[in-house]
Design a protein around this nucleic acid. Structure first.
Lengths: 130, 130
DNA sequence: TTACCTGCAAAGTCTTTGCACTCTT
DNA sequence: AAGAGTGCAAAGACTTTGCAGGTAA
């Protein structure tokens, strides 16, 4: 169960940290493939999952779209554009202790939550006006 | 562009309302197929999408899982079990005007939000103890 | 009649996985 | 040497779509 340091693994980590902006697995793959075309998508997926289990990156599961991977940031919420599917950070305070506001958990053990806003991003908005 | 009343369409609507509990397209299909085995999955998907666009049912896009369909309820949040992927309603007040808490929308036009809690459901919890 | 709908199957998107080989340790 | 990791391709889960025939209005 010992984890090894492989080139591919560090390339994946580096790509996520460089891209920053909620990259999809595909974007991570494309980024790496520019310099290291032999890497395979399977490896990218395997490492993205491994690294997010280890807490080195954050996996963002987006309703109705591909998963996104992010460098480890402070907690914050996201917004997804319903037109182009891009994901942006939302500039607002997170709600502290949201889990504690639940009246009756009925035996459900909460480990976290996500808030995802829906809307239309600035780019798509301006395209509509044309 | 006139919508027709077809047997399949009303069966889909009826199944969603009967099942109530955040059924997946597959569960809706299975339910209908019990009595009407000739229905096809493509038709179920097409009608689920149509009915949710019409506002007759609600489409719940779940991060990392199949979409769910629900009868039209008051606004409420959901929790997904990270073990068995089931989805449950959460018994808490919704946060009013969450969109207004955003400091700087930067041109993003918000149309709504989802809050999805993660955790382990009662069933999976008790199985762990065995 | 018309054009909306259906069943079917193929294709599309995103992700995981089996296999044999490779490389870290 | 051992076994974790890799590339590749196939498969898997979920959903959409093209097509030709069916049917509500």
């Amino acid at each position: 169960m010992n984890m090894r340091n492989t080139l591919q693994r560090s390339l994946v980590l580096e790509a996520v940290n460089t891209l920053q902006c909620h990259a999809t697995a595909d974007q991570v793959y494309a980024k790496i493939a520019q310099e290291y075309p032999d890497i395979s998508k399977g490896t990218v997926y395997r490492n993205l999952n491994l690294l997010s289990e280890l807490g080195k990156i954050r996996k963002l599961e987006i309703p109705g779209g591909a998963d996104r991977y992010d460098h480890i940031p402070g907690e914050h919420y996201h917004a997804r554009c319903t037109k182009c599917s891009c994901v942006l950070d939302v500039d607002m305070e997170c709600i502290p202790d949201l889990e504690n506001k639940i009246r009756d958990a009925r035996g459900f053990q909460f480990t976290g939550h996500d808030v995802i806003f829906k809307g239309v991003c600035p780019d798509c908005n301006s395209k509509d006006l044309q």
